[in-house]
């Protein structure tokens, strides 16, 4: 699906949502759910927590749909800002809980086992085992921008609006994030 088609679909779904149409929420979930799941999984390093965050994002979209103002930004920007803020809040709360010894460090985020074929599952898990720590090693802002670009397929302007930065600053973050990830993955391949 092209970015334009997705933006149009999201805008129509948002209009329906503001009129109280719950099925429109499913359309938004189909458009942004996979990306937000992947984003949250790698921001939090925990697949089950990512599922919880994804649910919370869309519950928030439903409960605050009337507050969405199209003049202030695209639907994607609004939804991704909610997702980014929820992940940031969760990370902060978790950092406090870990500091107090109330929470253990989770295992790396892995894809669901719902993929068809045992080989594909094993291959996917192996890829994620290498990729997860490499992404986790990036600075927070670089990882956030890179995940919005790759997992969310957002354009630079959309990422800039969601993160409250200029497009130039986002490009800088993306260049550094790609370089850091290539370097880390390259080192792993050399081992």
């Amino acid at each position: 699906m092209t970015a334009e088609a997705r933006a149009k679909g999201a805008s129509e779904a948002m209009d329906a949502l503001m009129r109280g149409d719950r099925l429109a929420l499913s359309r938004l979930i189909a458009l942004y759910g996979p990306g937000i799941r992947a984003f949250a999984a790698h921001q939090l390093g925990d697949a089950s927590e990512a599922e919880d965050i994804a649910q919370e994002v869309f519950l928030r979209v439903w409960s605050e749909a009337r507050r969405y103002d199209p003049a202030r930004g695209a639907v994607s920007t609004w939804i991704w800002r909610i997702a980014a803020n929820l992940c940031t809040d969760r990370r902060r709360r978790r950092a406090v809980r870990r500091f107090l010894g109330l929470e253990a460090v989770p295992e790396a985020a892995l894809p669901d086992d719902a993929m068809p074929g045992a080989e594909r599952i094993v291959a996917g898990r192996e890829q994620m085992r290498q990729l997860g720590p490499a992404l986790a090693a990036l600075p927070d802002r670089q990882r956030e921008a890179l995940l919005m670009r790759t997992a969310g397929e957002l354009a630079t302007a959309e990422i800039a609006a969601a993160m409250g930065l200029s497009p130039g600053a986002v490009e800088q973050l993306l260049v550094r994030a790609r370089a850091g990830l290539r370097r880390t993955m390259g080192e792993k391949d050399d081992d």
């Binding site: 996979p34 799941r37 869309f58 894809p111 719902a114 996917g124 997992a151």
Partner: peptide, 18 residues
Amino acid sequence: GARLRAGREDTATLSAAV
């Protein structure tokens, strides 16, 4: 992006849960 989204494309469960 393809690697990150692998295994997370199915939105039916997420939609049903929400």
